[in-house]
Design a protein around this nucleic acid. Structure first.
Length: 283
DNA sequence: GGTTAGTCCTGCGTGC
DNA sequence: TGCACGCAGGACTAAC
């Protein structure tokens, strides 16, 4: 489930094969993912040089020489596969077309980038680069959690008076953009805050601690992704999914890892999603 | 305006 | 073994 760190890892993995290269051929194998592809997307991509590869929240933005920007969202199960490229001492031959290969980009450097998405919660769109920030999916996003606009004052103001669990508030992309279910669980564990606590009841002290904790958790995951990137290239060219050692996520029944705690990681459902926490550490 | 439930989708794990 | 079912979840839309 790609959240901000996974998307950043994918972006970094795509950089050496896409940035500066020309999309020699683009194949789009179905009319839609989450939404319909923009009209003529294959034609509009073909011949375009990728001049930059950026990330905003969980979106990858590929700036093109055609003054358009390709927006990519991995959704839940979206994967990027690189083949035909020389990465380090490894060369990946093009694999046989697989089920759910929806978009295939053949670069002029010989690399092939394949977007595979079984659940089709992902999305792609094209927009003018000059007004990319105004795209409906991007314009409503809150600040980047690793950016300067995300700070204690912002978070405090957005949590103030909100009668919703802190878990839900931190998942709200309008409040801060890029956190998903996994990292919110990890952040709240590290902060010692119960996921069901009302956002308005989070104290000033806790808010001041949340900001650096969110940065830490995400930065550590990006770092882990970076170090795993090399291994994944070697393994099969697939980017973005790597093993993390989560403290609470998907660890229901396990002993809490806090020294001397003795608690047991517990699962509850909030807004139809699993929350994992330690009832002794998190209040 | 704020909040929550429903929805989309397919693969996987579990239980019968 | 095979089937039915629930679950996973990002983010929109509708309803309250």
């Amino acid at each position: 489930m790609p959240e901000l760190p996974e998307v950043e890892t994918v972006r970094r993995g795509l950089l050496p094969v896409m940035e500066g290269a020309v999309i020699a051929a683009a194949a789009v194998n179905r009319p839609d993912l989450r939404w319909p592809f923009p009209p003529g997307i294959a034609r509009r991509l073909t011949g375009a040089r990728v001049t930059g590869l950026r990330r905003r929240s969980k979106y990858i933005l590929a700036d093109l020489s055609t003054s358009e920007t390709l927006l990519i969202h991995l959704g839940m199960s979206g994967r990027m596969l690189i083949s035909g490229a020389q990465l380090g001492s490894f060369h990946h031959a093009h694999p046989a077309p697989a089920k759910h290969d929806h978009v295939v980009l053949d670069m002029d450097n010989g690399a092939r980038v394949t977007f595979n998405d079984a659940r089709r919660f992902g999305a792609m769109d094209l927009m003018p680069t000059a007004s990319a920030e105004a795209h409906p999916l991007l314009s409503v996003l809150g600040p980047e959690p690793l950016g300067n606009d995300f700070h204690e004052g912002h978070l405090a103001a957005r949590l103030k008076g909100r009668a919703t669990p802190i878990k839900s508030a931190l998942l709200d992309q309008h409040l801060v953009a890029g956190l998903g279910n996994i990292y919110v669980c990890e952040v709240l564990f590290r902060a010692g805050i119960h996921p069901a606590r009302m956002a308005r009841d989070v104290t000033s002290l806790e808010v001041s601690r949340l900001v650096p904790i969110i940065r830490e958790v995400l930065s550590e995951a990006i770092e882990a992704g970076g170090s795993s990137l090399k291994d994944y290239r070697q393994a099969d060219g697939e980017l973005g999914y790597f093993q993390h050692s989560f403290k609470v996520y998907d660890r229901a029944g396990d002993a809490c890892t806090s020294p001397g705690c003795g608690g047991q990681v517990t699962r509850i459902v909030q807004l139809g999603r699993s929350s994992f926490f330690c009832p002794l550490c998190q209040r």
